[in-house]
């Protein structure tokens, strides 16, 4: 079985300096991975780099996604290939309605994959169904993208998009931050319903809390740009108990 995502010895710089210093990671279809780590360890850098946000320079290493070199693709091409990033801070786009935005996203992705686009009626029906599953008022689809949304609404909107686009790999960047317990459960329900044998999930989080609801297959601890420990779900509990210092303070 070939890996869905294969990150090999990745070194990444931003304007402020070196962030990732030899990161290696492989995710197979059907797996849920969690990356945990202290602030500034490079978690969000990895998420943004995978999605192709400008401003991140790969110094060396490779990223293969579904058998193709991800680093050569434009951001929209990565989306078309099936990579999805749930943003930590989803941007507001005043004036563009959520529905219009979702339709553009779904249609362009379908077209890029030589698929028939959903009819408007089917699209609306499906969107409303998913919104209902996520406890989102249908009115919410008419509002501007993330415009005036609460923190919880923004995150649920990200999950809504994930469910509609049905990507091969969903990268969730701190999706649990700023959520109350009810919203967290709703989001987890969405992610769990998304899990299948064909796709993968990469969760990036600072806290163990999310992992109570979305149980990962593998947990990685990222510190200073490298994965310093990997293990099963039990690793999270150990981290919760002992803190990151338990790992980071150990002599190399």
């Amino acid at each position: 079985m070939s890996a869905l995502l294969n990150v090999e010895d990745l070194h990444v710089n931003v304007a402020e300096g070196k962030i990732l210093k030899g990161l290696t990671l492989a995710i197979n279809p059907g797996e849920v991975h969690a990356i945990m780590g202290p602030n500034g360890s490079g978690k969000s850098t990895l998420a943004n780099l995978l999605a192709g946000r400008p401003g991140y320079q790969v110094q060396s290493g490779s990223v293969t996604f579904a058998g193709i070199n991800l680093l050569e693709l434009e951001p929209e091409e990565r989306a078309h290939a099936g990579l999805f990033l749930a943003f930590q801070y989803p941007v507001e786009i005043p004036g563009v309605s959520n529905m219009e935005f979702l339709k553009a996203s779904v249609d362009h992705t379908a077209a890029a994959n030589d698929q028939e686009p959903l009819s408007t009626v089917d699209f609306m029906r499906r969107t409303k169904q998913v919104a209902a599953d996520l406890d989102l008022d249908p009115e919410f689809l008419k509002r501007g993208v993330n415009e005036g949304f609460s923190g919880g609404e923004k995150k649920r909107n990200e999950i809504l998009q994930m469910l509609l686009l049905a990507p091969k790999l969903a990268v969730l960047d701190e999706t649990d931050s700023g959520l109350d317990i009810d919203a967290l459960q709703t989001v987890a329900k969405g992610v769990n319903s998304f899990r299948s044998a064909d796709n993968g999930v990469l969760m990036i989080t600072h806290y163990q809390r999310l992992l109570d609801y979305i149980v990962p297959d593998v947990i990685h601890v990222l510190a200073d740009g490298q994965i310093i420990r990997s293990g099963g779900a039990e690793l999270a509990l150990e981290l919760e108990e002992k803190g990151y210092g338990w790992l980071t303070d150990q002599p190399a």
Partner: peptide, 9 residues
């Protein structure tokens, strides 16, 4: 960028 990350060219 947000739009592009959702597949819109």
């Amino acid at each position: 960028f947000y739009l592009r990350s959702r597949g819109v060219p």
